[in-house]
Design a protein around this nucleic acid. Structure first.
Lengths: 294, 294
DNA sequence: GGTACATATACTCAAAATGAGCATATGTAC
DNA sequence: GTACATATGCTCATTTTGAGTATATGTACC
């Protein structure tokens, strides 16, 4: 009844982890590409095959792994199709630092609202976008919503949409018509940076109501570490005491009895995640427990 | 550097709409398969190609469309791979009813908690699962969490996980080792029912914090219609007055000035969605505004 | 016109969750 | 002991929920 054309398929992985207060991604080729490999004939599941490629290319063992999105490219050479199935995977941060790790914010500097310089950059971007918007009310409103202008508040989960807007506006180097003067963030080859943006959006959404953050932390951790991981990913500061309350009240974690050995200050209790919670957490509602002002 | 093997790719669509209080899916072949078509050589985007197939096979025009998941099957015949890229799309319910529409709950009867019979079915399922669980504490806990047993509350978003558990337990006909006596829900060919379960989970998650429900409703609608659409999808009753408050306070909708012409009762105001909200809605928090008891 | 009915809409009030902050505890370095 | 730095405990006003009761406004029928 239906004929199925042949195409090529590639598996791509965004390997995330968190180093103190920086969300990192494992890259290859000077930060320009992500680990990936072709889909072979073997009968293994997609995830298993992906793990194989990743281990071979990076030596990493993946934690929680999740499919992100499937993109299709038309190859110029022979007009065949390339299907790119992308995944995001968590790497526990007790792995030694690898040289190929980069901050996610090297690629999306405007997404880190903890950084005062990012505010300036953001103003600059909004200025550039104004030109692109022109008289279009639609575009204007889209910009406002995505970049948290007047009636709207900044929404950290819209990272992908922001990247795509900048692409459309020709402000990132990968864009078909790059119009920028300075480069906004590190570029990558092919679609990889879009895959990365997808991962950022997804992980920001998921840390709120699932237990993925814990896959990024070592087995035991302090509440500050937990908070810093959330802050790193969300790109904003959170209110310490309220964050603790949220976590403790829900009994998401349990004390190990052990303590931290800090450089300065009072040692913090070490906790461990209670896996009985399943994936169901509630580390923040629609809105994160932000610190005031900032 | 890397060799890419060839495979076949198929696009599959779950077309959703809501008829009064029933969430429906458009099927083919007596409810056994979903609209689908091969990925061809042409340079169009995946979504456009999908739309093409769907229009050809069903005549439907799709609203909001969203990629769900990419599955891979190994074909027995030639050991080649088949990659199945699945999508879910909303169809506005002012389309005339098509004969090929089925209730989602024909496939997942245990998911409709508005139906008193579903409670009995659920008890029955839990009984069957007890055997499968045996002595395994892990399985026991997983069942409890997914089916809302003792310490846990029922979570409507876990529809996919529940289906996969039933598959593992051999209680659905598609399972490798079907052990059931009665059939739990209508079976489908290949992976299609799993795709459907993915769509159900996804749409249940998305109606809470995006505006997808509005893509399922006609241009103008009453608040009751809106609520019924939510209830149909979530499979549970919601508290009317509180639901209204939630919607109105956020200014998600605006009055059209027109009124409903009901069979009985006071006519209701007709509303329209305010697209200025973008995708950002908040039609329910982590928990839906449920009616008490029920 | 007046009932019965059925739905829409308004308003209340206690309980729970949140936002913002102050106060205190407990460690290290000097 | 003092200075510092972080952890942890606790308060309190404000908002947001959950669960109702009460009232409004239409139709069908006597």
């Amino acid at each position: 009844m239906k004929q199925t054309a042949f195409c090529r398929a590639e598996l791509v992985a965004v390997l995330l982890n968190v180093r103190k207060d920086t969300p990192c991604v494992l890259t290859l080729e000077k930060g320009q590409i992500l680990p990936s490999g072709p889909l072979t004939m073997g009968g293994r599941s997609l995830q298993r095959e992906l793990r194989g490629w990743v281990e071979q290319q990076t030596g990493m063992v993946l934690g929680h792994t999740e499919q992100l999105y499937t993109f299709a490219d038309t190859q110029v050479a022979d007009k065949s199709r390339l299907v790119r199935i992308s995944y995001m995977a968590m790497i526990s941060s007790n792995i030694d630092q690898t040289p190929a790790e980069r901050s996610l914010y090297d690629y999306f500097p405007w997404e880190d609202r903890r950084n005062p310089e990012a505010h300036l950059l953001l103003q600059h971007i909004v200025g550039l976008l104004k030109e692109w918007v022109g008289m279009s009310a639609d575009k204007q409103q889209r910009c406002a919503r995505l970049f948290g202008l007047d009636p709207y508040a900044w929404n950290d989960e819209l990272a992908l949409d922001r990247y795509e807007l900048l692409w459309e506006a020709g402000l990132v180097q990968e864009a078909r018509v790059f119009q920028g003067h300075i480069s906004l963030g590190l570029p990558m080859q092919a679609d990889y940076r879009r895959v990365l943006a997808t991962a950022l959006s997804r992980v920001r959404a998921k840390i709120r109501y699932t237990s993925v953050v814990f896959d990024l932390l070592p087995e035991t951790f302090t509440l500050l570490q937990l908070q810093q991981a959330m802050e790193a990913l969300a790109g904003c500061w959170m209110h310490k005491q309220n964050f603790r309350r949220l976590v403790l009240q829900q009994k998401l974690v349990e004390e190990t009895g052990a303590f931290d050995t800090p450089q300065q200050g009072r040692p913090a209790k070490l906790f461990r995640f209670r896996p009985q919670m399943g994936q169901n957490c509630y580390l923040a509602g629609a809105k994160l427990p932000l610190t005031p002002l900032s």
